[in-house]
């Protein structure tokens, strides 16, 4: 580990957050199974929580410093620490009592390299936690996302519709083919397994479902259903309630990027109106990105 903690008293990070539930929601979106090791990377810009599975699926939750009411970064380099995602979320969740304002302070490292959490808004009732961290594994593959051609292949779909479509595809299961074509502009999810099921999003017919669409040539890739499902299985209710959209981009080699936005605004000041693209003041949004590798044995329709 870095020796920064030993020669100066200042911890690498001290930050305060006034909406614990928002952070719980954002991190929950990346929980697709019980036991998951997460790597937290701390920088002057905020925190990134990274989870991955068998070199095929990676999730990144960006908690930018603007989400925090206080963010004091005192490290050299970018400290990385490993925690159990489930434990971290369950622990944060105990700080989030309904009907109370919950301001917490997060500090790293503690005297024994722990991640320290404590509630700071009440003198007579306080909650504290120390989570043991471990030296993180190296990220096994670099999800270097590059656009597939000169123009990006991308579409934005209502998160609720995306989740529903992927949930429906559970029945055929196995692997799902995603086809994006310019003429007619549409996105097709097709599952072949125990049976076959095809779900089409037509850009002109479903303008309120398919919010944006950029595609100049047809591409088609297959993805493992269980990885595709992980991208929407734990989407927090607030995302559906806020009527947000998710952006999907197909990059070089068929690498699929799925982006969600989760509000971390304080409930008392939450916006009453959010327009259809789910745009809200960016400082109060946590970004979640999933990267899904395509199945390799598939011959693709385009490069």
């Amino acid at each position: 580990m870095e020796s920064s903690a030993t020669d100066s008293d200042a911890p690498d990070l001290v930050c305060q957050l006034d909406n614990v539930q928002g952070m719980v929601d954002a991190l929950t979106a990346a929980r697709w199974k019980r036991q998951q090791d997460a790597v937290i990377e701390i920088s002057e810009h905020g925190m990134v929580v990274i989870v991955e599975e068998t070199s095929c699926l990676q999730a990144k939750v960006y908690l930018q410093r603007e989400l925090f009411i206080r963010y004091e970064y005192g490290a050299q380099g970018r400290p990385r620490l490993g925690v159990s995602l489930g434990l971290f979320v369950d622990c944060l969740n105990t700080f989030s009592a309904p009907g109370h304002s919950n301001t917490i302070e997060i500090q790293y490292p503690g005297p024994d390299m722990q991640l320290l959490l404590k509630s700071v808004d009440s003198l007579d009732a306080s909650i504290y936690a120390e989570i043991r961290t471990r030296i993180p594994d190296t990220i096994s593959w670099d999800y270097n996302f590059e656009p597939a051609g000169s123009t990006p292949l991308t579409f934005t779909v209502k998160t609720a519709a995306l989740k529903e479509a992927i949930d429906d595809l559970e029945w055929p299961g196995a692997s799902i083919q995603i086809t994006v074509q310019p003429n007619p502009p549409s996105v097709t999810f097709r599952g072949d397994g125990h049976g076959d099921l095809q779900i089409d999003f037509m850009y002109y017919a479903n303008a309120d479902l398919l919010l944006a669409f950029h595609c100049d040539r047809q591409v088609s890739y297959r993805y493992k259903y269980k990885f595709l499902r992980a991208t929407t299985s734990n989407i927090p209710g607030s995302v559906i309630r806020d009527n947000r959209g998710s952006k999907l981009t197909i990059g070089r080699g068929g690498l699929l990027k799925v982006q969600h936005l989760v509000s971390v605004a304080r409930t008392s000041t939450s916006h009453t109106h959010i327009d259809s693209t789910g745009y809200q003041h960016p400082s109060r949004i946590a970004y979640i990105e999933f990267f899904v590798k395509p199945e390799e044995d598939e011959d693709t329709a385009d490069d």
Partner: peptide, 12 residues
């Protein structure tokens, strides 16, 4: 537990 210590305290 081995991985975490979590506590709450109520005073006064």
């Amino acid at each position: 537990t081995t991985f975490i210590t979590l506590g709450a305290e109520f005073r006064q």
